[in-house]
Amino acid sequence: MISLIAALAVDRVIGMENAMPWNLPADLAWFKRNTLNKPVIMGRHTWESIGRPLPGRKNIILSSQPGTDDRVTWVKSVDEAIAACGDVPEIMVIGGGRVYEQFLPKAQKLYLTHIDAEVEGDTHFPDYEPDDWESVFSEFHDADAQNSHSYCFEILERR
Score class of each variant (00 low, 15 high):
T73W: 11
R33K: 10
G56K: 07
N147F: 00
D132T: 13
F140L: 14
T73G: 08
L28F: 12
R12Y: 10
V10D: 03
N59K: 08
D87A: 06
K106M: 04
L36W: 05
S64F: 13
D132H: 08
N37Q: 08
R98N: 03
S138M: 08
E90V: 04
M16W: 05
Y151W: 06
S63K: 03
P105L: 10
I5H: 00
S150V: 03
G56Q: 05
T68C: 13
P39Y: 12
D11E: 12
W47Q: 15
E120C: 11
F125L: 14
V136W: 08
H45Y: 02
D116A: 14
K38E: 07
F103Y: 01
R71Y: 07
V136F: 11
I50T: 04
I82E: 08
T73V: 07
V13A: 05
G86E: 09
P105M: 11
C85F: 15
H114F: 14
I14T: 03
V72H: 15
R98L: 02
H141D: 02
I41C: 15
A6L: 03
E80R: 05
W30G: 13
G51T: 14
P39A: 09
V72Y: 15
L8R: 04
D87H: 11
S49Q: 02
S3R: 00
K106V: 11
R71T: 10
F140K: 13
V40C: 08
S63L: 04
Y100C: 07
D142H: 12
A107C: 07
R98D: 02
W47C: 10
Y111T: 05
E129F: 12
H114K: 15
G67H: 04
H149V: 12
H45L: 02
N37R: 10
G97R: 04
N37M: 12
R12V: 08
I115M: 08
A19M: 04
P25E: 04
S138E: 14
L112N: 02
Y100D: 02
V78Q: 11
Y111K: 02
L28V: 00
I14A: 13
P130K: 12
G97S: 04
Q102G: 10
M92K: 02
I82S: 13
T68G: 08
K106Y: 13
F153G: 02
L36F: 13
D132G: 10
L62C: 15
E101Q: 08
